[in-house]
Design a protein around this nucleic acid. Structure first.
Length: 406
DNA sequence: AATACGGGGCA
DNA sequence: TGCCCAGTATT
């Protein structure tokens, strides 16, 4: 039954395999880049990023020497941005330790940043033909159905067991094709919702199918729902020297969306997770104005602009966006000087969660650290990496501004 | 073992 | 609109 599986799967792969950019060469660098991009990400999404990435960073050395912001910009919109940071750190490892060549040694490959058990197996087998298993979600789904395995695939121990099984199934000298065939079957035929069993090369001996339980496999504990977060967001239009520009800030070096750029935003409410974003516009804008002043950019509220939502795996953001106009040091709407507004905001328990400082502020001791900020035009967006939600807001704003709708 | 970490596709 | 998908690092 096992030999049948491997032979028929390989035969099917010969004719069914997709023509993918990283399958056109055997370049270990291309295989590596593609495998990192494919973590948690669909093939169709990855393809344009892959082309852009290898055009911008043709060799490992190019990647190692590039400014980090360039790498992040190239990854913009792809998500899980630590992958990009780890990838560049790993490229530097490869240059320093392995002369710029992807190592073919298992321990060395596994030691690269961002390379875990799956990616190590994929690189070793696909790029170097070594008989290592490469067990991802597709593979676990296929194996759990074919062998009717009811272990919870969310448990790490299950992946280890699947690796043992997958390793045994690799035909002599065929690791590269076999591992890709396994994943290709999961992606094209043995799909999560309604598998195309009639098109499956190994249907005859599929234990899950024979038992009529294929759609109930693999067994998998459900993920928790993302917790909602309500945030007030400021779209501050520059005046005077900054006329025609919008204020953006850079996020902290670690954590969510590390080092990416965003519009300033603060929690709508503190310590009331169930309360939602029900704060009336007036108080909401006052709160935002105080936060902006505290960050060194006093501004006058113009009114509500739009709402936006963004879902991460663990957080659901509800953003209420307000327009502001850059003010002088004395905030006309509150009558407070910037420093007083700042103090008032701090006293009220304000924070700039996620936007905290990358460098200490230039102010006197006791001043809260200031985030790095910039006044940008639409053209400046080409060099700064933004999460999708802010890309949407900024593009809509600049579009409407251009059309004279604002 | 549990949690942090994006974004897209589908019914 | 709501649910599904799922590798690596960190703790």
């Amino acid at each position: 039954m096992e030999q049948y599986f491997s032979e028929h799967l390989l035969e099917w792969y010969e004719t069914a395999k997709r023509d993918l950019p990283w399958r056109r060469h055997r370049d270990p660098y291309y295989i590596w880049i593609s495998e990192i991009m494919l973590q948690q990400t669909r093939v169709d999404t990855v393809i344009p990023y892959f082309h852009r990435f290898i055009e911008r960073f043709p060799t490992i050395t190019d990647l190692a020497l590039a400014p980090e912001e360039d790498v992040l910009k190239c990854w913009e919109g792809l998500g899980y941005y630590s992958r990009a940071r780890n990838l560049q750190a790993a490229a530097q490892q490869v240059v320093e330790l392995h002369g710029g060549q992807v190592p073919s040694d298992k321990a060395a490959v596994s030691a690269l940043k961002g390379v875990g058990p799956y990616t190590a197996g994929a690189i070793l087998s696909i790029a170097f033909g070594q008989p290592e298993p490469a067990v991802d979600g597709n593979v676990m789904r296929v194996l759990s159905r074919y062998f009717l395995l009811e272990d919870d695939i969310m448990k790490p121990a299950t992946r280890v067991r699947m690796e043992t099984l997958a390793a045994r199934l690799i035909p002599e000298g065929r690791a590269a094709d076999f591992n890709q065939a396994l994943m290709e079957l999961g992606a094209l035929v043995c799909t999560p919702k309604s598998p195309s069993c009639r098109a499956c090369p190994v249907m005859e001996h599929c234990q899950g199918r024979l038992a009529g339980v294929e759609t109930q496999l693999p067994v998998k504990t459900k993920a928790k729902k993302p917790r909602p977060e309500f945030r007030l967001t400021a779209l501050v239009e520059g005046t005077g020297a900054e006329e025609g520009r919008v204020l953006v800030r850079q996020r902290a070096a670690t954590g969510l969306l590390a080092r990416m750029w965003e519009l300033p935003h603060v929690p709508a409410v503190e310590d009331q997770p169930g309360e939602g974003g029900g704060l009336p516009d007036g108080p909401a804008m006052d709160r935002l104005a105080a936060a902006l002043a505290a960050e060194g950019t006093p501004a006058r509220p113009l009114g509500p602009y739009m709402e936006a939502e963004h879902t991460f795996s663990h957080i659901h953001w509800n953003l209420r966006v307000f327009r502001f106009q850059q003010a002088e040091a004395c905030d006309a709407s509150t009558g407070l000087m910037a420093a007083e507004a700042s103090a008032a905001y701090e006293a009220a328990g304000g924070d700039n969660a996620g936007g905290s400082a990358e460098r200490a502020g230039a102010g006197a001791a006791g001043t809260a650290p200031q985030p790095v900020t910039r006044w940008i035009t639409r053209e400046d967006m080409a060099e700064l990496a933004f999460p999708n939600v802010f890309l949407r807001i900024l593009n809509q704003y600049f579009d409407e501004k251009e059309e004279g709708e604002l």
